Simulated assay, not measured.
Amino acid sequence: MAPMTDLVSPGSKPHGSRITVEVPVVRVGSGSSDYEGLNRFVDSLRKPQGLHMTLLHVGILDELGRDIVAWTKGFSPPEKVLPEISSWLTELPVMQGFLGKSDKLIPLGGGRLMGLEVDVPQEVHDYQSLLVQGLHVLLDDLGLDNIDDFILSSPALGYKSPRWLPHIAVGKARTRHEPAMEIAPVALEFGDSRIRNREALPSPG
């Protein structure tokens, strides 16, 4: 894994954008027709150029800052912790691109979306686990207690379960109660890991 070395310059944009660590989808199947074939199962199929798989959801930093202030009863103010979070993110190692596959569509977001459930190599699970462990250590260094509870209860972080399920959101579900469904196996290629909305991060501390 190569290190991320470029840091955000001072005076960056206000940090109201949603921050995630993700991998872009480079290819679905053998061509565009393989992806467009999913139109049979979902409404409003997303553009293939924007497809990605989230490895770690950090959320809107201003909201995360408010969650931390509430959790620490004001002991850890946003102006102190958010640059530290930014520094941690920008120093994360980059995971190189990899191959995966999918043979199932699953409901996401309380049934509002459908996504491909993805089989990924073990090293991807290991990298994602390292991200969560790193977030845990970071929050501990920032003075938070009961960190597992904080991660699962913070609205900004948005975790519903401690278990990560690799998936790619592909479009709207046709109904709120759409079931999981088997599809013909499709190969997937992913690019190197990256920070979504990296330019919106505050200057690292």
Rank of each mutant, 00 (worst) to 15 (best):
L7C: 05
V42N: 01
N146R: 14
L142V: 11
L130D: 01
G205M: 08
K101H: 11
G50K: 09
D126W: 05
L142C: 09
A187L: 10
D141K: 15
L108E: 00
G11Q: 04
W71T: 11
L157K: 04
V186Y: 01
D62G: 14
S193M: 06
G31M: 11
L116A: 08
L130E: 05
V26C: 03
D119C: 05
M95P: 00
G97E: 04
L152T: 02
S12L: 03
G191A: 12
N197E: 09
S102L: 10
W71Y: 10
M181R: 13
S153A: 12
D119T: 12
T20P: 00
H57V: 08
G158C: 08
Q122V: 13
A200L: 02
R46A: 15
L45C: 07
L130M: 07
L56S: 02
I195E: 00
K101C: 12
P155C: 06
V42S: 01
L188H: 05
V137L: 11
G134F: 11
L61S: 08
G191D: 01
S30F: 09
P48W: 02
M4I: 03
I19A: 07
P166A: 11
D103L: 09
A169L: 01
I60M: 12
G11M: 05
F41Y: 13
E189A: 15
D6K: 10
D145G: 14
Q133G: 04
V120S: 04
K13V: 06
R40P: 00
G143T: 07
R194L: 13
